[in-house]
Design a protein around this nucleic acid. Sequence first.
RNA 1: GUUUUGGUAGCUCAGUUGGAUAGAGCAACUGCCUUCUAAGCAGUAGGUCAUUGGUUCGAAUCCAAUCCAGAACACCA
Length: 623
Amino acid sequence: MNIELNIANLVAKGIETLYNQAITAETLTIQPTKKEFEGDFTFVTFALTKSLRKKPEEIGEEIGKFLKENNPFIANYNVIKGFLNLKLSESFWLQTLATIATTPNFGKAAFHGTKVMVEYSSPNTNKPLHLGHLRNNFLGYSVAEILKANGYEVMKTNLVNDRGIHICKSMLAYQKFGRGETPETAGMKGDHLVGKYYVVFDKANKQQIEEILTQYQQDTPNEDIEKLKEKAGKNTPLILEAQEMLKKWEEGDKETVDLWKKMNGWVYAGFDETYKMMGVNFDKIYYESNTYLLGKNVVEEGLAKGIFFKKENGSVWIDLKEEGLDEKLVLRADGTSVYITQDLGTADYKYADFPMEKSIYVVGNEQDYHFKVLFTILKKFDRNYASGMYHLSYGMVELPSGKMKSREGTVVDADDLMDEMIQIAEERTKELGKIEDFSSEEAKNLYRMLALGALKYYLLRVDPKKTMLFNPEDSIDFQGDTGVYIQYIHARICSLLRRAEVLNIEYHPKLSGSDLRSDQANTRLTEGLYGSVQLQQVEIELLKHITSFPQRIQEAANEYAPSVVADFAYNLAKLYSRFYNEISVFNEPNEAIKRMRLALSAETAKALKSAMNMIGVEMPEMM
RNA sequence: GUUUUGGUAGCUCAGUUGGAUAGAGCAACUGCCUUCUAAGCAGUAGGUCAUUGGUUCGAAUCCAAUCCAGAACACCA
């Protein structure tokens, strides 16, 4: 349902009839009427003045008259300057309500099965998840849900970075200083324990850098200090040992691999817990330890096709200067892979797994350049999936104190943050004392829903592309433009609907078989259920807003922006809240109006829930 | 230096393919709980849309330049 487009079609027909000029509806500007003017939708006539050689007011007047005379749904019109404001009839809105109510999964598109892969999360196994990961995970999960709502078949994947020098660092530190500690003996989640040893490594290594640096300065007092620092950073005993360990790992040394397996096992157990709490999941998990050797065949292929070239020392490159990029290394002189090599191989590997038309990478914007290069190369290779690749590049999350820095200990841990939010949700809820009849199980579940809802909404309401500020004080605020506010409105509606059920009020049009979604059936039902009742302005506003849901979901998918859905939900909740305060449902003496208001409430709740679920937020029915 | 992203109210953010007098929330102030959940509602106040120029009936939105801020530009991942 797209009212704007329908009106545009009517206007186009009008132009053809009145002025004998063919025009496509899509080129006409129809927009919701600003609230300070009378009307529902506005046709902007300026664009037509040249081709029709008429004044904007004249065009508006003539088309308005035509529309009103020829269409029963256009109740009235007025023209201000070049703006033709159209008022739609009550029966139109009532029928719209019936259509929404009888459309299963209103807002969502029919399944068309186009395959799309969404890769997100992609953690390193050397430290626990933090606030930045939360934005990534919530975004990835939400985009996947939004694509599903648009009819795609979605495969959610996670490419875990489980190998490399950084992993060896925590392994080495554990080996040296761990004394056989385990998550059980330490009373810590596995990912946190491993993260602890990563920090231990870093500290010890820093000390070694200092020592070496002093040595260097004594040996070569005239050398530039920055150069010496760099050299020292690469040559500490610990770093050399870690590199040695990486080599051993690659050779399959049993002791090293066993340790790696043990520690990664701890990390995965920890991650699973965190993912569960976050409410995200994956259809398939890839591990870099399995994919890091991929891509060498692609390098061969590139050389054979003349897309890559070899330098004298044997390293392989691609020249992307024509694309406005630089020369880029794709294989080291010693024949080992770099980051982009494995990404090239992994792209083929994923496609063999799941022949998708779109492949979304949810990765921070510090890797914009990398993905530009990756996609450009794959296009040069004529991979048939290359044109469907998209880097969902999101901005960093900053704190009021600035960027999160692990060195300065300002990193906000994901587990800690979620726990804290749950605790605050519990405190607030207890203060309000509304859920005394909840079992402790139900109460706990509610705290979780509220806390995660607040957090997800807070992180997803902002356009993904933008750097955003995480203000701890604002994030725990449950008032105003927040997830909890929307959940609250939903709970209130559910309360009304429960009462309607107790009172046995039948407000929902029930259709079956051939009746389903036919206009005549709608009209019949609408008249039977609601009669020709008078609608309040807020009620029309609500209907207008709900009606825009399908377009908003599409827009969210086109832009990969959950913020669009969040915005829809918030504004719908706000409108309903106004309705709820202005208008009484159960004190209304007219039964038809009562039914209409209940149906309107029910559809609002459905749309709210549907939208919020798309951003991963659960909606309580009582709170 | 090159490339790239951003700059809207004190703060955090919206603002569709250019459309009417630029919107929310927070913070501040004023009202509203014998009435369907006050985690709410209504209202007041708050703006040189970074700056300058251009395009046109019309610019926060498009173009150019400038200023400011972030990021990327490794035989790291």
